[in-house]
């Protein structure tokens, strides 16, 4: 059956017609062109398709689109500010080597973001617990955990990574 649904998608009120059997993953990728949400397994075992619905990280491959009616959906495309500034979590992943092939990155970054929303200063175990459902085959997770930890630390403790800045090449 098709029906009209309305929800907040990355800060934009969105109304559209969907079919009942569409997963949220299908809606985002195939109908809305939001291909930042990845499919890695289709059965909730890898976390590549993670988005945040009403503050909670969920697997869009096992979540029906019809269920987002009236809810707030945040995908990786909506994480950076509208003015283009990256979210601190994105910046930290970039600066600390948390990204290699990048296929798990959108889901991983969103899982990490959801964690910090509910626990601003998680310890290593809490970080690992929160991202255990996001499989990464490239990094061995070390630099990902590092990146999340650095985002969650107070500003003063953050280590500046000089090489990222464009004006630090040659002096």
């Amino acid at each position: 059956m098709s029906r009209q649904i309305s929800f907040d998608l990355n800060g934009n009120e969105t109304s559209l017609e969907i079919e009942d059997h569409w997963t949220l993953l299908y809606l985002l990728r195939e109908k809305l062109g939001l291909t930042g949400t990845k499919e890695g397994c289709g059965s909730g075992e890898c976390g590549a398709c993670t988005v945040i619905v009403d503050g909670a990280a969920i697997n869009t491959c096992l979540y029906l689109a019809v269920e987002v009616e009236g809810k707030t959906v945040l995908t990786i495309e909506g994480l950076a500010s509208p003015n283009g500034d990256l979210h601190p979590m994105q910046k930290s992943f970039i600066e600390n080597g948390g990204i290699q092939c990048g296929y798990c990155s959108p889901g991983m970054i969103l899982s990490a973001t959801a964690l910090l929303e509910e626990n601003a200063a998680p310890d290593d175990d809490e970080i690992k617990h929160a991202i255990a459902g996001n499989i990464c085959r490239c990094t061995g997770y070390v630099q990902i955990i590092d990146a999340i930890k650095r985002t969650s630390q107070p500003e003063t403790e953050k280590v500046k990574v000089v090489a990222w800045q464009s004006d630090t090449g040659n002096k």
């Binding site: 990786i76 994105q90 959108p106």
Partner: peptide
């Protein structure tokens, strides 16, 4: 030596972190 030996971020990392990178699925 200025850039060699530096912890330079991966070039395409921002594209990947924002979901803009296109894989074969995309």
């Amino acid at each position: 030596v200025y850039i060699v030996g530096q912890r330079v971020s991966k070039l395409a990392a921002a594209e990947k972190a924002t979901g803009r990178s296109k894989y074969i699925q995309d």
